[in-house]
Structure formats: C-alpha cells, structure tokens
C-alpha cells in the first residue's frame, strides 16, 4: 500500500502543531512554577469548591444518564412503537445543538415563569441559577454518550442467552439482573465515563443556567475563564492542567474499559 510516509507525516505534523504543541506549551508554563505555588493555586478554597461542584454535578449527571440512557437504548433496540425513528434521531440533539443554545433554552424552561419552572418552582424545585441547574445542563449535553455506547452492544446481544436463562427456569427480572445487566456492564461503564468526561469539560450550556457565583455555582471551567479575565494566568493554567490531567486519565480509563469489555464480547 502506498502513501504511508506521506499520510503519516501529515497526520503527525497536524496533530503536533494543533494538539501537542498547545498542550506542551501549557505544561511547560506550569512546570516553570514551583511545586508549592502550583499546589497553592490548585487548592485555593474557591478552586476546591469549583472542583467539588464540577465533579459532583458531572458524577450525578453521568449517573442519571447511565439509568435513563440504558432505558432509552433498551426501548429503542428492543421495542417497536410509533415514532421510534424520530426518537432515535432526537437522541442526537445534544450532539448537534450548540451548547450555548441548550443552556439558553434550559435556563428559560426552568426559570420561575418558564414552561417547567412554572410548575416546579412552587414545589421548591429550582432548576435555573442553582446547582441543580448545573446538573440539568450536564445531563442534557452528555445524554447521547450513554445511549449511543449501549445501543450497538444491545443490538448485538444474543437473544438466545436470555432464552437459555428462561429454559433454566429464570424469570424475566432474574434474567435481567443476573444475565443482561452483567453483560451490559462494561458498555454502561464506558457510557458513564464518556458522559462524565464530557460533563466535566462542559462550559457553554452551564454558564447560561447557573448563577455563576463563586463557591456556589461556579464550575471549574468557568473558574478558569474568570481567572483569565482577571489576568491571573498562572492560576488559570494551574486549574486547566488539573482538568487536563483528569481528562487524559479518563480517556485512558475509557480505552482500558473498552479493551476489557471486548474480551467478553467474543
């Protein structure tokens, strides 16, 4: 096959300039700091509060998506119902919709006079400008990851395995708990990790629906932006590096998960 040198050369050049140099540059700047400076900037109370919210809300969002994403994938793969194709297409809305628009409309929906807030706020459920709002926005943007990771796995799952459980006397619930869920678990975990990673880095949708208050509703990416606006470059880069390392670790974990899962799919 021809073209290895040329295509590989261009690929490495492109990735090098566009991805590796920027990452390297930022790491270089952070390495110029002393460890104690880095640690101090990375663990200011404001930063800690931001991590807590970012990780906590992302974790919650990923959990919610693991449940509803699994349900959606199951319904889309296993059942026939009118409008199924439309629902399947709609799952990708969060991929296709600019996050700023998602934040805008969600903030409006959950505000006291929005369509949903109108009913929810009197019940004490405040979806806009709160930590709950952050979770809602993150659920929205990361939903497709959970569904789309699970769908192909479910489609390729042998129906015979479930029938085998039935011939051995297992009821539907039992089969679900002991046969179906364990074999879906790697895919559910992968979907969870992907959702989590996406939620952690999300910025656009959250700043619309959150009140963006320090210590309360300020997520880590927003903290970076605020620090940047105050010309606190070192502090901004420190937080950025923390997030970067977490994303790389997550990416590696997802790859490992997928490799582990492929063992059982043979």
């Amino acid at each position: 096959m021809p073209g290895f040198r040329r295509t590989m050369g261009f690929t490495l050049f492109y990735l090098g300039v566009l991805v590796l140099l920027p990452i390297g540059g930022m790491l270089f700047r952070v390495f110029e700091m002393t460890w104690s400076d880095f640690w101090r900037l990375a663990t200011t109370p404001r930063a800690l509060a931001a991590y807590r919210l970012s990780f906590g809300a992302s974790f919650l969002a990923a959990m919610i998506n693991a449940v509803f994403g699994t349900l959606l994938a199951w319904v889309l793969v296993r059942y026939q119902f009118p409008g199924k194709k439309w629902v399947d297409a709609l799952v990708d809305v969060p991929f296709a919709l600019p996050t700023a628009v998602a934040g805008l409309t969600l903030a409006n929906l959950f505000s006291p006079n929005g369509w949903l807030g109108h009913f929810l706020v009197p019940l004490g459920i405040k979806g806009a400008y709160t930590q709950l709002g952050v979770v809602l926005a993150l659920v929205f943007v990361s939903l497709p990851f959970a569904v789309r990771t699970l769908q192909p796995v479910l489609e390729h799952m042998e129906r015979e395995v479930e029938e085998a459980a039935a011939t051995l006397g297992a009821g539907r619930l039992r089969t679900f708990a002991t046969v179906i869920i364990p074999s879906l678990l790697p895919a559910i975990l992968t979907g969870f990790a992907l959702s989590f990673a996406r939620a952690l880095g999300e910025y656009g949708s959250v700043i619309f629906i959150s009140s963006n208050m320090q210590y309360k509703t300020e997520i880590a990416p927003l903290l970076i932006v605020s620090l940047l606006e105050q010309f606190e470059y070192s502090a901004a880069m420190t937080i950025a590096v923390v997030l970067l390392v977490v994303s790389i670790v997550l990416l590696a974990a997802i790859n490992l998960l997928e490799r582990w899962a492929s063992h059982f799919q043979r």
Partner: peptide
C-alpha cells in the same frame, strides 16, 4: 484527545502561545 479536553482548557492553551 481534543474530544476529552474541556473547550475552555483548549482555548487557554492557544492563549499560552
């Protein structure tokens, strides 16, 4: 990798250069 990195962090990396 760019999928995993927060867009904000990505933007910052270019500011660094």
């Amino acid at each position: 990798l760019p999928f995993a990195i927060s867009p904000v962090v990505a933007g910052l990396m270019f500011v660094v250069w």
